[in-house]
């Protein structure tokens, strides 16, 4: 059983490994010109360079701060709206059409207006990120609450529970897996959008490092940026995933039954 799991994990590594070998082969022999795709060794050196100079850390810190604030703003507002719509039918009736309309708008389409309203400084980036993070959070929270089985609600009706006890005993635990999925989607959206925001407007940050590197024809730095973004996003999702299993693991396996 354990062996099977390890084997399955290893299978996922095969294609990346082949790609890496191909990358190394094609670039070290300059079959692909280095200015178009730098070799792995160059990427590693550049990464080490950026790392040891503290440049990477500084810019990552800025990006992660933006992600943090944008994520919090988006996740909290999304959670509140999703909860309100899920718990109170009138709120849903009033707001759901508007919300569904809003979520059809790709977040990037807000850029011109957001820049007009907020300039290109931090508030623009944070609000932009929160717009994107808000949507999956609200959707998943709503879905979670709407998905609370009616049969459980009947049980507590018989026990004459007050609304708070219903919320605490049934609705929140039942909606948690969906809310947790919402959180993960929300974070990954926030991380993608911070790069988008930084590509559009200046300021320190990993996205901006890439814009500047592109303008200065530093293809290696651009590629380091891409890889760092991928690894960070992957790591953040993994951490949330582990937290999820840690706190909801039991609960999950039961729902799967």
């Amino acid at each position: 059983m354990k062996f099977q799991i390890i084997k399955n994990k290893l299978l996922g590594l095969i294609i990346p490994l082949i790609l890496y070998v191909a990358w190394d082969f094609l670039t070290s022999r300059e079959i692909i010109p280095p200015e178009l795709l730098p070799a792995p060794k160059v990427i590693f050196d550049t990464w080490w360079d950026l790392q040891s100079s503290g440049e990477l850390a500084l810019n990552m810190k800025m990006s992660l701060l933006r992600v943090g604030f944008g994520f919090l703003l988006g996740a909290i507002s999304g959670f509140l709206l999703g909860t309100a719509m899920g718990l109170w039918k009138p709120v849903e009736l009033y707001l759901n059409p508007l919300f569904n309309f809003f979520r059809q708008i790709p977040v990037v389409a807000w850029i011109p207006f957001l820049i007009l309203w907020l300039g290109i400084d931090e508030w623009f980036k944070i609000v932009f990120i929160s717009f994107g993070a808000f949507i999956p959070m609200a959707l998943k929270t709503l879905e979670g609450i709407k998905g609370v089985p009616a049969s459980y609600l009947e049980v507590v009706r018989v026990f004459e529970y007050g609304w708070f006890r219903v919320l605490r005993t049934v609705i929140v635990p039942s909606a948690l897996p969906s809310i947790s999925t919402g959180l993960r989607l929300c974070l990954s959206e926030a991380w993608m959008l911070v790069i988008g925001a930084e590509l559009v407007a200046a300021g320190e940050g990993i996205g901006n490092v890439m814009v500047i590197a592109r303008r200065l024809f530093q293809t290696d730095v651009v590629l380091v940026g891409v890889i760092v973004i991928a690894i960070t996003g992957f790591a953040m999702d993994k951490v949330l995933g582990l937290l999820e299993t840690r706190f909801l693991g039991l609960h999950r396996s039961q729902n799967a039954q």
């Binding site: 280095p34 200015e35 730098p38 200065l216 530093q218 293809t219």
Partner: peptide, 11 residues
């Protein structure tokens, strides 16, 4: 840009 391009490996 000419120098940066050349430095970045542009032939």
């Amino acid at each position: 840009p000419v120098l940066a391009g050349r430095s970045g490996g542009l032939k």
